[in-house]
Design a protein around this nucleic acid. Sequence first.
DNA 1: TCTGGGGTCCTAGGACCC
DNA 2: TCTGGGGTCCTAGGACCC
Length: 420
Amino acid sequence: MYGLLDCNNFYASCERVFNPSLNGKPVVVLSNNDGCVIARSAEAKTLGIPMGEPAYKLKELIETNQVAVFSSNYVLYGDMSHRVMTVIQQFVPEIEIYSIDEAFLMFDGFENINLYELGGKIVQTTTRNTGIPVSLGIAPTKTLAKVASKFAKKYKNYKGVCIIDSDEKREKALKLFEINDVWGIGRQFTKKLQYYGVKTAWDFTQRSKSWVRRELGVVGERTWLELRGTPCIEMDSSVTKKSICTSRSFGERLTELAPISEAVANFAASCAEKLRKQQSLASVLMVFIHTNPFASNQPQYSNQLLLQLPVPTNDTTEIIRFALAALKSIYKDGYRYKKAGVIITEIVPERPFQGDLFDVRNRDKYSKIMGVMDSLNESYGKQKVKIAAQGFDRKWKLKNEKLSPCYTTKLSDVLEIKAE
DNA sequence: TCTGGGGTCCTAGGACCC
DNA sequence: TCTGGGGTCCTAGGACCC
């Protein structure tokens, strides 16, 4: 059996843990730049605040209902997530951290164990030890576990745990489950399925395999099989990413190359750091920039450039240099830029290292420098030591006016983020 | 004036090989 | 009326997830 543990209204719950006066009140968390709503407490959902709604459209609603509004605080959420994952790991040998607020649990070898009891214990312990309310779904496939977790969250009498362990329960659950809520069925698939009269997950499972294959491809076929109880999606506990991206919308529009370069240098540095953290190297780098697509009355420009690096690397100085060269070649005067980003792909392990016979760079030396830089920043706070190209102007900095303190992490992180 | 950021996987088509 | 069969690799774009 597979389990899916999901934190309820995760970001909003994180804010509440350290500010209990928010309990029972509507809370929303905004995306970077205080752009749109990305998390809502139950009370905020009741008010009808939709997910993804731009914050400026909600001003009135927020004021009249005294909604508590927070800028997103990923240092805090990341740390709380780590705490949750640590607790669940004490109960099952294998988990897959699926997102910041979700994990799959593998119940292989638990045949003689009462999963209702164990599930209840996992939910209670997690909530007690972290302050975050969670829901747990358990079923023979990942997709069904997802379905179960939604029921666990929705109906109070499940006490946070819902198990689908018979065909009768599966049928009952799927008949109550709208097709668009199924994991793996997004907007396009929903449109198509609704056109053919498929309204619930159950309707979907009653279609023929070949029909599903034809209309939705292998991906849809897997979902179909999973909903019928045949596992097709395995556990994936690997932590090494296959691509790493750092991108931001700027707090204000940028028109000059210099401040955008500073931003891109910082994005590149962040990618390199993430790469070193997972002990990998990357051999392809992409830089992109674009203007504001919502400003239809202004001249639009967007471009990206993909660079093949001569030798796979995770060296900040090298990655910055290539990223800035790429930026320079796509940057055009006369536009108001809104966003830029750096993506690295073709990621390989640090060892064994495949070098280049004609490489002139002293990689050992730079690798030592990176090591020292990382450990200084680990001890004394983010960005205490950085590359000059990352600069100090920070014209591109984010808007986050409603940031809560990083209650759980180092003081230096708090000061750093406030300074930003 | 104000609309996020970070991922994975699959497919179709083109270029190439024998 | 008629023009083989079997591959690989790469890329861009599209679907999905949180």
